[in-house]
């Protein structure tokens, strides 16, 4: 049959018919590589998958560049750090920078572990509290209708428009009135009430089928049980993602003008001090940058499998 005489539509139909009749044969034609690429689906073309991978590859290169640069910088000896133009990869890797960093740390009055504890406390308390409070608030907004719920949802969306960072001065005054200046709470409390978390949780919770919640209600569960045993497990990817986002926000917080006492300061404050000491400490600075970067990455890798995963919301058909 000469296919050039056919219109495009007819051609397509013909192709479909052909594919149908030769289903078993076609799968045999796919190489092992192609099968792996398309996850064994017959309706996925190898070409399409390859294009997709190529696109992703280019983007990943852009994203990975600073990481590679950071890592190789940390292992560069001082003379290589100042090569101009800078080289991407290290030529003679050395651990001197880390040794210098630990020398510097052992000389300081307050032990490194204290800074680490401060940061970890702030980060963990802030993130966990943020997730708890925003998911508690998101649950009724996403799943129930009651007087004022619509208005509150609108307020949440609207408050995303306001840049909360401009309120530094009144924020400081409120904190000082509450007696929270120079305590961890001055950093942790503002983290609790960010509306971004509430907004994200609300979006995800709206995807949980109503039938699940109705079923729980009929079985006589309390509202807390509904949230804890049904909704929260269903939106696990959402709150793990939120945890990572708020972890990294708080991890980088130097607590600049809220905490004065040196042994209450978080790790970034100390590292910024080291970093600001100029050219002579360039090696130490690149080592600290790597350390600052490693921790969130480790946290991310641990929780990675859950982040951005497809929501599996039970087998209910609506």
């Amino acid at each position: 049959m000469n296919s050039t005489h056919l219109t495009k539509k007819q051609q397509k139909q013909l192709d479909k018919a052909r594919r149908k009749s030769m289903k078993g044969v076609k799968i045999k034609h796919k190489s092992k590589f192609a099968k792996a690429l398309t996850k064994g689906r017959s309706n996925r073309s190898v070409k399409g998958s390859l294009t997709l991978l190529a696109c992703l590859f280019v983007f990943s290169l852009i994203m990975l560049f600073p990481v590679v640069f950071l890592v190789s910088n940390a292992f560069k000896p001082i003379n290589e750090l100042f090569i101009f133009p800078p080289k991407l990869f290290v030529i003679q890797p050395t651990l001197d920078n880390f040794a210098d960093l630990f020398d510097l740390l052992s000389d300081s009055l307050i032990p490194f572990s204290r800074y680490l504890f401060n940061t970890l406390f702030i980060v963990l308390a802030g993130s966990v509290g943020h997730i708890l409070i925003s998911s508690m608030a998101a649950f009724p907004l996403a799943k129930f209708r009651f007087p004022g719920s619509k208005l509150l949802s609108n307020i949440v969306t609207l408050s995303l428009m306001f840049t909360a960072a401009v309120t530094a001065v009144p924020n400081y005054i409120i904190m000082s009135k509450l007696g929270f200046v120079d305590t961890y709470w001055s950093i942790i409390l503002p983290a609790f009430s960010m509306s971004l978390g509430l907004f994200l949780m609300k979006n995800f919770m709206e995807q949980v089928p109503d039938a699940l919640i109705d079923a729980a209600q009929i079985d006589g569960s309390t509202y807390f049980t509904m949230l804890w045993r049904i909704v929260m497990p269903a939106v696990k990817p959402a709150w793990i993602t939120l945890f990572i986002v708020s972890f990294q926000t708080l991890w980088g917080n130097t607590a600049g003008n809220f905490i004065y006492t040196e042994n209450m300061k978080p790790l970034p404050a100390m590292l910024t001090q080291i970093a600001s000491s100029g050219v002579a400490r360039a090696g130490v600075v690149s080592a600290t940058s790597l350390i600052m970067f490693i921790v969130p990455v480790v946290v991310f890798i641990i929780s990675q499998s859950n982040v951005l995963e497809t929501m599996s919301t039970s087998g209910i058909k609506e």
């Binding site: 129930f144 009651f146 004022g148 408050s159 409120i174 009430s193």
Partner: peptide, 26 residues
């Protein structure tokens, strides 16, 4: 439902008023 809705919203609302709305006005 409304009662529990507001109980659940309370912590966030408190933080929102105290740390967002009041500073904005101030």
């Amino acid at each position: 439902t409304a009662l529990w809705g507001f109980i659940f919203l309370l912590p966030w609302l408190l933080g929102f008023l105290l740390l967002f709305l009041v500073p904005m006005v101030q």
